[in-house]
Amino acid sequence: MKYVTISTSIIYINKDMINQRIDNFILKKFKNVPKSMIYRIIRTGKIKINQKKIKPDYKLKNGDVLKIPPIKILCNTKKQFFPLNNAKILMNSILYEDNDLLIINKPSGIAVHGGSGCNFGVIEYFRKLRPLNTFLELVHRIDRETSGILMLAKKRISLVSLHKQLRENKIKKEYTALVHGLWPRHIKKISEPLLKIQFKYNQKKVFIHKNGKPSETYFYIKKQFSTSTLLSIFPKTGRTHQIRVHALHAGHPIFFDQRYGQSHLDANIKNNIHIARLLLHSYKINFIHPKNGNKICITAPLDVSFKNYLNNMI
């Protein structure tokens, strides 16, 4: 392992940086620095704002002057490979863009951010492809295996506005999924608390548990086939893996879900086109534009593999 030392940094906080906690700001800026080190240098007063010690929950203000002491960073000596094919796919997946927002139809199999064995996720791709965008952050996340709508903010003020809408349940999302079996018509809502458990090697799995966070998902039947059901799904809350776990709880796991599905059901499927992706897609999103206040509705068409699989079942 090789380390490099970053010299003292002076950062002048502008309007695109405000209202975020100092600890989160530093963690994003120095991703190769252990969290424990970041919190230690904040706690000991080595990080200063306007020449004063601050606490980790301090929120940045316009005009603040942030001073960061020299920090030793782990340097990856292996040259990172930038997959141009994925970059081209993502550039062709843009559904909507203006000065405040970038919304894409994320393909299944591409993570929203790097980590857990992959160097590049959606956010890293677009930061590299759009070097003139001084600010670019994920508004929300969807699973790596899930396809569909993903929103990125191009301004801090837009990110804050959309996060407020998420907290107040003003952003409405609709998903499409194919599940095993005939979904019972009387099951239109599942409200089961979800608990996320972290395992070794940074892997996580979500379980229904009384000590979990409140979660609510609405299910509507779009079409029923002989042994499966196409659903429209409306999550009221946005917990990790919420739709997948609630579908499993109902006894109707989503097709080809390697984490929460049932492999013996997937194995019995006559799969003429050899699809193996999770058949869950973020189809539609409704929100208020953070700048002009207009109501926006964006839809993302199903990809070719998902669409072909459905056509194959008719």
Rank of each mutant, 00 (worst) to 15 (best):
Y220K: 13
Y283P: 00
S7E: 15
K15Q: 14
I275E: 05
I233H: 04
L231T: 04
K200F: 12
R156H: 14
D303S: 09
Y283Q: 11
A250T: 14
E145Q: 13
L302V: 08
F287T: 06
L265P: 00
K236G: 01
K172L: 11
I285G: 00
N268K: 15
T8L: 13
L265R: 08
K35N: 04
I243M: 02
N271G: 07
V65S: 10
E145G: 03
I18E: 09
I26T: 09
R185D: 15
S108D: 05
L195P: 01
F199R: 13
L178V: 09
E174K: 15
S263D: 12
F199H: 14
Q51F: 07
N272T: 11
A111Q: 10
I187K: 11
H209L: 03
I6E: 12
P70H: 08
F234Q: 12
K106F: 07
L230F: 11
I269S: 05
K128R: 12
K78Q: 12
S7F: 09
K223G: 03
P107Y: 05
L279H: 08
G212A: 07
Y283K: 13
S228R: 01
N202L: 10
L74I: 14
L90F: 02
A153G: 06
L265Y: 14
P131K: 10
N133T: 05
W183G: 08
M91Y: 01
I73V: 15
T227P: 01
V139E: 05
R185P: 07
H252F: 14
K67G: 00
T240A: 07
Q258I: 11
G251F: 06
V4Q: 14
D16L: 05
G45H: 01
K236H: 13
H264G: 00
I221A: 10
K210I: 14
K196S: 11
S9Q: 14
L194F: 11
N92Q: 15
I221V: 15
L248R: 14
L194E: 08
N286Y: 11
N92S: 14
K35C: 00
I157R: 11
L84H: 10
P69L: 07
N99C: 09
N272Y: 10
A177D: 05
P131I: 08
I47P: 01
H264V: 13
H249W: 09
G115Q: 03
I104F: 01
I41Q: 03
F225W: 04
L302H: 06
H274D: 12
E137C: 08
F219Q: 00
G181V: 06
P70C: 05
V122Q: 10
Y201D: 13
I11K: 07
I94A: 03
Y218W: 10
A247Q: 01
V33L: 15
E145V: 07
V33W: 01
I187Y: 09
A87T: 02
Y125G: 05
H241T: 05
S108N: 11
L278D: 09
K173R: 15
K53N: 08
L90E: 01
S263F: 08
H289L: 06
I243S: 00
